[in-house]
Amino acid sequence: MSISPEELAAYADGELANDALARVAAAIAADPDLLRQVEVHRALKARLSGHFAPILEQPVPDRLKQLLVGTGDVVNGDGKGGVIDFATASARQRARPRLPGWNWGGVAIAASLVAALTFTTMGSRDSTGSYAGAKLAHALETQLVATQPSDAQPRVMLSFRNGVGEFCRAYGSSKASGIACRDAKGWRFEALGGATANSDSEFRMAGSEAEVLAVAQDMASGPALSAEEEAAARASGWTD
């Protein structure tokens, strides 16, 4: 019974299951040459991965980022718009009195979405705080925005420093969203919200995530961490 190169590659890439897996595995066990071919396949895969991996750590050219930030700035078009530059937006916000019920006209649709959301920020009176459980804490401790899978659960949206210099991270998942800041004890919840993915409607999803990001803007003392800053923060254990 011969094993095709395609089957062998599929085996090496973990693509086989059940009968096909058993058949190829048995053939490899009986034939050192097949095993060697699997090893060559995996060695090439490791070499290619290693060769292209540094690109993930490089700073993204500004001309690419510029295509994505600033396009949605409906506020005052200072040319720096976009979520990433939220320290500027936050400062602008503080400079302007907040008027409940203020009519912003052209953005009424978005307003109705925001009104439908529930989002709770923890009061500062809660000095004991509550902390992320093991699974979420692990994700917050290890995932980087730039390299996490796009369907990660939870997905970290961004990282920033709060007013007292702690690292904080906004995250979302199919179950919950929120913001947690790292202190000596762990990842302390600062805000908790609803699901940001796979919830009942597209609008709810977008709204929840937007809400988390908006609260992050209020809490941040500077811009969101860049990919390099985030990697450095992780390397330091988020304690600096």
Binding site: T71, V74, R92, P100, A110, F119, A214
Partner: peptide, 19 residues
């Protein structure tokens, strides 16, 4: 938390895809 609507949130909504 009280949420008076403000344009910053609209901006955040419209830039989600970009984000």
């Amino acid at each position: 938390r009280d949420h008076p609507f403000n344009p910053r949130r609209a901006k955040t909504l419209s830039t989600l895809f970009e984000q």
